[in-house]
């Protein structure tokens, strides 16, 4: 076991996690810069596959990418070290903030600023969902549009549990695979 490599892995993941704002995709870009371009531990092509895998697996993209990079660099120990280094910075920062939050939330000025920021974050989330929605509609697939409308109504109107909605759509995906396969065989 290469302690020096593990140390480098920890420091690099910690650094990337502590200084990247803006979520999953940004962190994958930083990882490429460090692990592919600087340290040359991973090939360019492999990093692209990691990004795709991290993005399509459950959970946070940054954590998923750390798991893949960790396994590749130092096996099981590497994976655990990379994950720990990735989750420590947000844990430390949020611990401090939640302590401050409890003290300052009763302050009228802080409260007003936070209330204003709540409006801003709602605008950000809705703007992001419009961008994502446009991407789905652009595919011009009637099934995807039906899913988007159906899931929205299920959540807004009928308050269906989110997990049930997600599982139902996964099931639709599985049925689609089988349907496509049968169709291909019939044609052949």
């Amino acid at each position: 076991m290469d302690i020096k490599k593990l140390g480098k892995l920890f420091v690099t993941c910690f650094y990337i996690s502590a200084f990247t704002f803006g979520g999953g995709f940004v962190i994958v870009t930083f990882m490429k810069k460090k692990f592919v371009d600087e340290l040359k531990w991973i090939s360019d092509e492999e990093m692209l596959d990691y990004a795709a895998l991290a993005q399509s697996s459950p959970g946070a993209i940054a954590v998923n990418a750390a798991i893949l990079v960790g396994w590749k660099v130092c096996g099981l120990i590497g994976m655990l070290v990379a994950v720990l280094a990735t989750i420590l910075p947000p844990m430390i920062i949020i611990s401090i903030i939640s302590f401050i939050y409890d003290i300052f939330i009763t302050n009228p000025i802080v409260k007003l600023v936070l209330e204003g920021m709540q409006i801003g974050v709602a605008a950000v989330i809705l703007s992001v969902s419009i961008d994502l929605g446009i991407n789905v509609v652009k595919q011009k697939n009637i099934l995807f549009i039906l899913i988007i409308v159906g899931a929205f109504i299920a959540d807004m109107v009928f308050n269906v549990n989110v997990i049930i909605t997600i599982l139902s759509c996964a099931l639709i995906g599985i049925i689609k695979i089988i349907y496509d396969k049968v169709k291909r065989e019939v044609i052949e």
Binding site: I125, L126, V128, S129, I130, L132, G133, V136, F144, I145, I147, I148, V149, G150, A151, F152, D155, V162, T165, I166, S168, C169
Partner: peptide, 8 residues
């Protein structure tokens, strides 16, 4: 598509 709807 479902995830997009849920985020919205």
């Amino acid at each position: 598509p479902a995830v997009v709807a849920l985020i919205a």
